[in-house]
Design a protein around this nucleic acid. Sequence first.
RNA 1: GUGGGCGUAGCUCAGCUGGUAGAGCGCCGCGUUGUGGUCGCGGAUGUCGCGGGUUCAAGUCCCGUCGUUCACCCCA
Length: 456
Amino acid sequence: MSKPTPLSGFPELLPEQRAVEQQVLDTLREVFELHGFGGIETRAVEPLDVLLRKGDTAKEVYLLRRLHETAEEGHAGFGLHFDLTVPFARYVLEHAGHLDFPFRRHQIQKVWRGERPQDGRFREFTQADIDVVGRDVLPAHHDVEVTRVMVDALRRLDFLPGFTLQVNNRKLVVGAYAALGITEPALVDEVMRQVDKLDKLPADAVRDALVGAGLDGPTADTVLALAAIATPDTSFTAEVARVLGDDARERSPLLAEGLDELAALLAGVADLVDDRTRVVADLSIARGLDYYTGTVFETRLDGFESLGSICSGGRYDALATDGRTTYPGVGISFGVSRVVVPLVTRTGLRTDRSVPSAVLVALTDEASRPASDAVAAALRARGVPCEVVASAQRFGKQIRYAERRGIPYVWFPADAEGGTHQVKDIRSGDQQDADPATWTPPTEDLRPRVQAKEQQ
RNA sequence: GUGGGCGUAGCUCAGCUGGUAGAGCGCCGCGUUGUGGUCGCGGAUGUCGCGGGUUCAAGUCCCGUCGUUCACCCCA
């Protein structure tokens, strides 16, 4: 077989890159579970009618088909899931009788989309979702909860650049539009769609589009003035009042509800905010997806703005319904691949070693391999990851073997004549006697650490 | 899916109007035969992404394809 070529949109990482991703995954899971979100996994495949239920035929779904499928097997067919929300909705309905509500879960899995790959956009990629689902009702404090969990998880990934979580509320937007006389559903959708483009198009162009959609000039200006509001605290409520008038809350109960929910969210996460971790109420955030009904999220990563949102989600009052019962939910999804792949390929983010081993046990000669194996076994018994060197070359080469892989310690076993065991820190050159039954490296050397390439 | 840029050594890249493929870094060996890194000396890098075409001659020009990247679409 000739040398295989890469497959577009199906990224693969080298061990020291994958180790970075693995730490992201470990941290996400740990923090999610710290907040009481248990993990589930759904099958990779869903019936096509489930995947396309929302009329999203534009979604590029990969089909699953048996090679020898016959024409008689004329069912709707299967497709690979393109996100984790749709399968989760199906899962909730299917297992509702065995779940306790409100149901919290996290789900970290690969998803597939047949889109054109681009930086941070792939055909196979990993998402990390958390959602809370209620039966019939789900109080608004769960919107705050979900936000807190994800912000907590992201801020603990201390090797990530800083980020800004942008939050808005569709009730606020729809209510405000109603107060402006924009009530026709198709027009509301169109106005939101145009406003959503403000991060790419100049305000003038968006204004023209709004007027083209049927708004008069003053109304378009007010819509843009609203969308320009972005505050790191609850002061957005005063700004909305300034734009729409002090009586706007009375004129639109939906607006009042949205303002209160968004204010509660901002207040509820204030203690998690720091220089790297910012949360802003940004009234230009709309989200193209039409099933969101309240809170909506997007997230920008400092220095990686071109990736778009790395973490998005929101509130859906009808995540799932079986006709009798409706399950409202609120969730947020972190694009693991979207962040990790550009980070490791563009900035050279790596772990400080390419293997898990903290110690390389040297080998005097092949005859003494059992002695080296015994040292390794003693270290492993206390949780020290280690490996025995592949071949009994000169010690200089064995040290170089460790150096290449970033293994910080080399262990020289006692020789047969009754010498002592010695361990060498090859970064400092320090070498001293050590007992395989008790020696342990400092905690920070036990596992690979993530570090920028410049620091290596 | 639509349109543009780019594909040369493991990496970053040079290679003029077509004329026998290069540098730096890295890698391997020796100096130093059981203690690496520094230094010195020596060595190997390669279907020039792949396929086809034009030509006496193609890394160089043309077409296709794959990869990559940017914009649109859409979104993590």
